[in-house]
Design a protein around this nucleic acid. Structure first.
Lengths: 226, 226
DNA sequence: CCTTTTCTCGTCATCATGACGATAAACCGC
DNA sequence: GCGGTTTATCGTCATGATGACGAGAAAAGG
């Protein structure tokens, strides 16, 4: 039996929260096609390499920090026949959520790498679509999981966690109700015993991510059109 | 630049509700590897074929009914280096939810096809894992979307819809509370005006699937360990 | 000491939910 | 016709989650 031949790539939607907004890691392409265009970081899956392994490798190569406290999961696959002019290429997109880290610009095969606020970006290939899917996945996951903590350093305040929600969802939340929800939902966060010091206002207690896989009950965003 | 060569397949997790339980469509393999083993239906993605197109084609070939009232969505991709002894094969799994239909056993390249209750089935390749992921996706989707109606014929009763939930989740629901929830959640179902007749008990009103994409508020199952 | 800022706790009305009683509308057997 | 059975539909009530918002606690700075 004969069948078509494909190349398989892994592309990464790497999200972080900085300056009060949701940002995505982009690289400027150094080769054709789409030379000099901005694109999601990614690359070919190697021989004898599993898909999650390839995703972690690309993440390490592009950011230098392989999921230290962050989160990595498969997003979706894209394989339209004309998505790459070089031939049939199927890409398996992964979604990474990271705390705000400086980008080591010394990427291997990318000329430049930088954080860009999510929005209408004219990216290479079908990466605008992939990015949109990744952002929607992230927004949805914050409702049902404690994954917002993946955007935070190991210890964080409830206010910092709330600002993650506000940045990802693009809406403001009541600090008092959010505090009640975060501290009363089992497994969402657990107190470390420490507090902030030196900042303005009353010191805040520090928390770590809890051990729950799912928030029960979930923390639902306000749906448009209700 | 050189890179590894892959074959890309589409595998289908086709679910339906029959005899009060969740069933999956399986085919008996007619070729090596895993000759005579049961497997998920699927096949190679053709030249010039998009991934959703390939999934719909395979679904039509295996069931004869291409999503007539059903639902088809991408599930996930699987590409472990050793998952197929013939070489590097990445499969893009799709999840299909269909009303209970007779299977036209005259599949093209499958010797047999039949509905099997989901559970521990010793399937070919990594199909047990794919099936488990598909079942979990279906269970989760029933919470947040009106997709349970995809398991029903175009017109159905609230009781039929409830039996879908009970079959997929494996738990029983209070008929009165479910009726209130289904009829009061905007966009879940819409009445057709008709009723059942001839059955035992009081006739039930008939409904169609509503136009909502998401249930708001969702219909959460009882989490184990609460 | 007073103001500002931010964190934390409380109150209250409203809404959704689980448990369950009661009525409605068909059928069956006699 | 007439109870008895079955299923559908509606209602009630207690409980828990949520949104809106008041108020005290704990720091910094003048």
């Amino acid at each position: 039996m004969t069948y078509p031949v494909f190349a398989v790539t892994v592309d990464l939607v790497v999200l972080t929260v900085r300056e009060g907004g949701l940002h995505v890691l982009l690289v400027r392409r150094g080769i054709e096609p789409y030379l000099d265009a901005w694109a999601l970081p990614g690359g070919f899956v190697l021989e004898d390499e599993d898909l999650p392994t390839a995703a972690r490798r690309e993440l390490a190569e592009e950011t230098g920090l392989a999921g230290a406290g962050g989160h990595l999961e498969q997003l979706a696959s894209y394989g339209a026949p004309d998505r790459d002019p070089r031939g049939r290429v199927v890409t398996v997109a992964y979604l990474a959520l990271l705390p705000d880290l400086p980008v080591p610009t010394a990427g291997t095969d990318a000329a430049e790498a930088e954080w860009r606020p999510v929005g209408k970006l004219g990216l290479a290939f079908d990466h605008d679509r992939i990015l949109a899917d990744g952002v929607e996945r992230a927004r949805s996951k914050l409702e049902y999981t404690p994954l917002a903590a993946a955007f935070c350093p190991p210890e964080f305040t409830i206010a910092a966690l709330r600002q993650v929600y506000e940045a990802v969802w693009g809406e403001s939340l009541d600090p008092r109700n959010f505090h009640r929800k975060a501290t009363s939902t089992p497994g969402f966060v657990s107190p470390t015993g420490g507090s902030t010091e030196g900042g303005t206002g009353r010191p805040a207690r520090l928390y770590r991510r809890g051990d729950a896989a799912l928030l029960n009950p979930p923390l639902l965003r306000r749906r448009p059109g209700d």
